[in-house]
Design a protein around this nucleic acid. Structure first.
Lengths: 380, 380
DNA sequence: TAGGCCAATGTTAACGCTCACACATCACCT
DNA sequence: AGGTGATGTGTGAGCGTTAACATTGGCCTA
């Protein structure tokens, strides 16, 4: 394989003459042994085809490699001139520190993992976006998406990240199964959860779904509706459960009847199917949908049945996806601030990574009601 | 699940009496092997609080660390029994190899970076999903989202990934500026582009937007419309340009007049605004929208102006987002297979990472027309 | 003017793994 | 017998960085 028939060319090579420009260290290892990267089409003129090392920078700047390291890590006690020299050398050589070597000695990788549900739903996708945006610029954000949130796949995902040695993990855990799995999962690195419900004994940030749903329900009641129906999300999701709770409690508190629950799977299709069921019930005058996509399907079903919105039936959604304002009719809905959620989660994680172990349960984010045209005063 | 793995555990078990399992020397190993590592103060016996090292596994399994390494890396020439012993020791100790140390010596990190536009648009988001799903299970997928795709931010993102030493980069580069920036960007690691246009001199995978738009336009012409208007996306995007091209060429080929172009920014809002403009023009009977969100806004504007869809105006979208089937009316649209796109891009990248340097330009993916209810035969 | 302190830099030893070898067996051919 | 492989295993040398300590020289203080 290797061209060399073995032996030690090192000794033979030990010409004192050779210009130090090439390499001060035992040139043998370098020249021969180094990864035979001829995959690189012959690069710059110089022989220095391999990536420059810290020691190359040091030599060019006329200092020791340790001083280069100090400059790189912004240690104090480096004179301004030295720093400038080193920086110049780094630029000239196009030097880039080797992350693996650094990690090996520091024990930190500057990478973190995000585990999320396997979907292109608006919520999770916005969440991911918010997280990536909130991450420190020198951090790498890796993602893992899960099809199901059972204990096994969660463990597996965590294991994967642990294997890749991330510094911390964020789990977007909107399903009850995820929370359970998370609770008896002990990792030796910081982990924070998003949307794990406000009672979970985990460092986490959450949205007050209950308050959001309550707000929307109350809004509909105030509009004169005798009661409000609910098109819930899949009840394996905490969001769905909490929204249902908020809806139910508000009705109970108002002394309104609590209709049977109807639930879908977040998709517009399921909203459409369940919508047909609801549309067939003449006493339905107000519906709270657990997300906007289902509300869209619901609107379509109502339209097909000839029930006018908001004339005959008022509809309120949840999430405020960007398209909601253009639904037929523009959807009154509950907005969650995913950006804020991501920022808080990231801060929480970074705090824990940098040592502070305090477990401050952050106050849940309260969603807003965005009033548009899909809900109106009850027609009598 | 079976530990057998093809070997003969029966025979191994029935071997001599003395159970070597126990005598494996937790304690005496210290005394005898001493020349090894007495640099470690205490800590050795009992409380193995720190993460176990490869050498710990080796000791427990009664082999050398190198053998453990061989098992881990699936080298040949390890006996079945040894392998089993090592595996058992790994399990017992909960050993997990240190990724940094491995990277340091192999020069590979098993991580790859995805650079994408900063948005929660359906396309990029689906793309990301497809990529993550197509990635080899032992690879970590890191993401970087860009606000703008100018040369500087692209370089910066690439630099970041290079700094983190990923093995390869995938750039979702749907904007012309990105392609330019990409072309004169030389990295020393494999890079593949998605949606960079089929003429870019880059390893890439693309969707044949032109064919998709042509198909949709022809469909509308065949429905008897004298011409087709186009609500384009932002023309800084290649997708928008290509779709426009497909539309324009089809009209030209059919000898139909080419109306003035109207363009938005992909959002439903812009579709709504431009839609009002189009709705005011009485001769408009067919519109091809460059994506589904804009089509939604367009539908709303048409409805507000009292133009029936598809009675008065036919509308066709692009993308086939999951909600499109529930638009008012259900949207006829062009579907892109993002999953396939992601898979192909990932394969291409992995091929290049593992050395094959052939530049096989893969055939663009042809999108489908999904016929629903928003386009109909021209009413005369 | 000696002593001490501190800024500025250099030297050496890990970090935990894989690679290239060396070595030891065993099998099978001449 | 003696090679010649193939197989199985151990040894030592790095990979490129940072941490810990060592060293220098200048400036302050008593």
């Amino acid at each position: 394989m290797t061209p060399a028939g073995g032996s030690q060319p090192a000794r033979a090579d030990s010409e004192p003459v050779s210009s130090p420009a090439v390499s001060a260290t035992p040139a043998d290892g370098q020249a021969q042994n180094s990864p035979v990267q001829n995959s690189q089409p012959a690069r710059v003129s110089g022989v220095q085809s391999a990536r420059p090392l810290m020691v190359d920078v040091a030599r060019l700047a006329g200092v020791s490699h340790q001083t280069v390291s100090r400059v790189l890590n912004e240690h104090p006690h480096v004179s301004a001139k030295t720093r400038a020299d080193v920086l110049a050398a780094i630029r000239d050589l196009g030097y880039r520190p080797n992350a693996a070597a650094r990690s090996l000695v520091t024990g930190r990788t500057n990478a973190l993992g995000v585990i999320s549900v396997d979907s292109t739903l608006y919520g999770p996708s916005s969440m991911l976006y918010g997280l990536e945006r909130a991450a420190p610029p020198d951090y790498m954000v890796a993602i893992a998406r899960l099809d199901t949130f059972d204990r096994r796949s969660l463990h597996q995902a965590v294991e994967r990240f642990l294997g890749q040695a991330v510094d911390g993990i964020i789990v977007v855990a909107p399903q009850t199964s995820a929370v359970e799995a998370l609770i008896n999962l002990k990792t030796d690195i910081p982990l924070v959860a998003i949307k794990c419900g406000k009672d979970a004994p985990l460092p986490s940030v959450t949205v007050d779904n209950l308050a959001g749903a309550a707000r929307a329900t109350q809004y509909l009641l105030d509009l004169g509706h005798e009661t409000v129906h609910h098109l819930a999300g899949p009840l394996t999701w905490l969001d769905a459960q909490e929204r249902m709770d908020g809806w139910r409690r508000t009705l109970a508190a108002a002394g309104a009847g609590v209709p049977d629950l109807v639930s879908g799977d977040w998709s517009a299709r399921s909203g459409y199917e369940m919508g047909h069921r609801l549309a067939a019930m003449p006493d339905v005058t107000a519906i709270l949908a657990a997300n906007d996509q289902m509300a869209l399907g619901l609107l379509r079903a109502l339209a097909e049945r000839g029930r006018d919105v908001p004339g005959d039936v008022s509809v309120v959604g949840f999430d405020d996806i960007p398209e909601a304002a253009f639904f037929p009719p523009p959807l009154t809905t509950v907005r969650q601030d995913f950006g804020e959620l991501g920022t808080r989660a990231m801060h929480l994680l970074m705090d824990r990574i940098s040592g502070s172990d305090q477990f401050v349960p952050s106050r849940p984010i309260i969603p807003d009601l965005v009033v548009r045209a899909s809900a109106a005063r009850r027609r009598r």
